[in-house]
Amino acid sequence: MATRSRLKIGAALMASAIALVGGWEGLRAVAYPDRLANGIPTVCFGETRGVKLGDSYTVSQCQVMLGNALVEFEAGMRKCLATPDAVPDKPYVAFLSLSYNIGTGAFCGSTVARKANAGDFRGACNAIPMWNRAGGKVVPGLINRRADEQRFCLEGVR
Rank of each mutant, 00 (worst) to 15 (best):
A127M: 12
I102V: 15
A147F: 03
G123L: 10
G76D: 14
V93H: 09
P140M: 06
A94S: 15
K79L: 12
D148Q: 14
P129R: 04
A116F: 00
K79C: 01
V139F: 06
Q150T: 07
F95T: 01
D120V: 01
G123T: 04
L142P: 08
L98V: 13
V93Y: 04
G119A: 10
G141H: 11
A127D: 15
A113E: 10
I143L: 12
Y92K: 06
P88Y: 08
A113Q: 11
E74D: 10
L66P: 01
K79Q: 14
E74P: 06
G109R: 13
G123W: 01
F95A: 11
K115W: 02
A147K: 13
M77E: 11
G119C: 09
V139D: 05
K79M: 13
P129D: 09
A124Y: 06
A86S: 10
W131R: 05
A69S: 14
I143F: 08
S110N: 09
G109Y: 13
S99F: 07
F121A: 01
W131P: 05
I102M: 12
I128S: 03
V139S: 01
R78H: 15
V138Y: 05
R122S: 03
V93R: 07
G123Y: 04
D148R: 15
N132S: 13
G119R: 08
Y100F: 15
G136C: 02
D148M: 03
A69G: 01
N126P: 00
A116Q: 06
A69N: 11
C125V: 04
N117D: 06
P91H: 02
G76K: 12
D89V: 08
V71H: 12
V139E: 06
A116E: 01
T83P: 00
R145K: 10
D85Q: 10
K115F: 14
N68Q: 15
N126R: 15
T111S: 12
L70A: 11
G141R: 09
P129T: 04
A134T: 08
V138D: 00
V139R: 13
G136I: 11
T104W: 11
P84A: 02
L66R: 07
